[in-house]
């Protein structure tokens, strides 16, 4: 291993290392993961069906279940489990920024004063004509 190779953040793999890594990846318990994903999908369906009228627990539970599913796919199917740190350096900032962007949109579009709380002028009580 030369000085140059040691300096690289990503060390090129020898063929033997690559073969070993491929071997590990190829024996992951994919069918078990698929079964877990099936259970989670059914779980989501039932959860959404029976809690459809209580938004708080519904959203909390569904986000949790969906995150678990997404994490399973990413962790096993996308081989994050077997990757080195650099992959997290690539997607970590993207996820962080995605979170920041969405979060900073909330004050302007969600945390608004309630329009129903404002007094309504009593000049016209006519029903609007439905469009079309």
């Amino acid at each position: 291993m030369t000085e140059a190779d040691a300096s690289l953040p990503i060390v090129p793999a020898t063929p033997a290392q690559a073969a070993a890594a491929a071997d590990v990846e190829s024996h992951a318990p994919y069918l078990k993961i698929l079964f877990a994903l099936f259970l989670l999908t059914v779980g989501e369906y039932l959860f959404a069906r029976f809690l459809k009228d209580s938004p708080g627990p519904l959203i909390f539970g569904l986000v949790l279940l969906a995150s678990a599913k997404a994490a399973l796919v990413a962790w096993y199917f996308m081989h994050l489990k077997y990757e080195r740190f650099w992959v997290f350096l690539v997607i970590g900032p993207a996820l962080l920024m995605a979170f920041i962007l969405t979060l900073l949109l909330f004050p302007d579009f969600v945390m608004l004063p309630d329009p129903l709380g404002e007094p309504v002028p009593a000049t016209s009580g006519e029903a609007p004509r439905p469009a079309g």
Partner: peptide, 12 residues
């Protein structure tokens, strides 16, 4: 014998 995941990280 299969090496553990840490022993053989996927190549970049």
């Amino acid at each position: 014998h299969r090496p553990s995941a840490d022993a053989a990280p996927a190549p970049a």
